[in-house]
């Protein structure tokens, strides 16, 4: 056990384990007992729908009538002559590129701010978490429109700084940026995970660093960041996976418009499946997305070995 490559990130370590084939029978049994809830659920409930959707991606399927086999035609059409595909992919990439780092940065800052022992912190936390609690109901769509329309709250705040706003969600040049902002505004879940991560860092580390006379900045870079890196890694990976599938904001606030400027991939896919009765085509889109996101995640895991730090026996960074 001790010999395990503890500095390596999950993927790398998992691979190592396999290679060495160190797993004993007893470990095998225990391991499968522990993961059995998931494995059972996967085999009973998840795997069949996944296989189905893969099969359907080679068919024409309106949902209203039985699917008909069309071979690779869906895939060919997607890559050859679907401008909505390229548009939505582009929109989604831009969204991911901006919203993931923004949200990570912002939620880490807020989590640090809320990780203090101040009176009334419960209230602050709840208030700040609130926007992330309200989900995606129709009431929320009205709220968002109210915030970002021409004479909305956001423009009101801007006017304090002498800036003249536009109709943020109805202008094709600003609509995507607004959705990115909106997404960042709902930073709560990421922030809570950071908060839980911060709470797991032993206080002793900070105390002994203080004794050594370390500055705040130094403590942040030498204790907080490394200790938080597994959680940071989680938020990054999940942030990317989640952002590629962003749906609600575009669906209820902009419906992808104006002129496809916020036509997220997941919305495009939803329209195909449930609005235009092309579930086969939508399934092909889903599997293409899966490949893209899986590639991004694999790269993430590969890169993570250089920056993610896992606790080890005595392996404190000093």
């Amino acid at each position: 056990m001790k010999a395990e490559a503890v500095h390596k990130p999950a993927a790398a370590r998992l691979r190592l384990t396999k290679k060495k084939a160190k797993s004993s029978n007893r470990n095998n049994l225990a391991g499968y007992i522990f993961i059995s809830p998931w494995l059972l659920g996967f085999l009973l409930l998840t795997v069949w729908p996944i296989i189905q959707s893969f099969y359907l991606s080679f068919t024409e399927y309106s949902l209203l009538e039985a699917p008909t086999w069309t071979g690779t035609q869906n895939y060919a059409n997607i890559f050859k002559n679907d401008t909505d595909f390229t548009t939505s992919l582009k929109v989604t990439f831009i969204f991911v590129l901006f919203s993931v780092p923004l949200k990570l940065f912002f939620s880490l800052m807020v989590a640090m701010m809320l990780n203090k022992n101040l009176k009334g912190m419960n209230l602050y936390r709840t208030a700040i978490y609130f926007p992330s609690l309200i989900g995606g109901s129709i009431a929320v769509a009205a709220l968002w429109r109210n915030m970002f329309n021409l004479n909305g709250y956001f423009n009101h705040v801007l006017s304090w700084f002498g800036i003249q706003g536009v109709g943020w969600i109805t202008n094709p040049h600003t609509s995507l940026a607004t959705l990115i902002l909106l997404n960042t505004w709902q930073f709560g879940s990421t922030m809570v995970i950071f908060l839980a991560g911060l709470k797991q860092i032993p206080n002793e580390l900070y105390e002994s660093a203080s004794v050594d006379g370390a500055s705040k900045v130094r403590k942040f870079f030498h204790i907080t960041l490394p200790m938080l890196s597994p959680v940071m890694f989680f938020n990054l990976v999940l942030g990317i996976i989640g952002s590629f599938q962003t749906f609600t904001a575009a669906f209820i606030v902009t419906q992808g418009g104006p002129i496809n400027s916020t036509y997220m991939y997941a919305l495009f896919l939803y329209d195909k499946a449930f609005k235009h009765y092309q579930m086969g085509y939508a399934s092909a889109l889903a599997w293409i997305l899966l490949v893209i996101v899986a590639l991004m995640t694999a790269i993430n895991f590969l890169v993570s070995r250089y920056w993610v730090f896992y606790e080890t026996d005595g392996g404190k960074q000093k």
């Binding site: 470990n27 998931w38 949902l63 999940l238 996976i241 579930m279 889903a286 899966l290």
Partner: peptide, 27 residues
């Protein structure tokens, strides 16, 4: 715990997150 196929199973676990639910909900 080190058990056989842990890496593969963990990858599958992660992959299940990446397929948009819209296409599995009907099956």
């Amino acid at each position: 715990i080190n058990f056989k196929f842990r890496g593969a199973l963990f990858s599958i676990l992660l992959l299940t997150m990446m397929l948009p639910g819209q296409v599995t909900i009907v099956p």
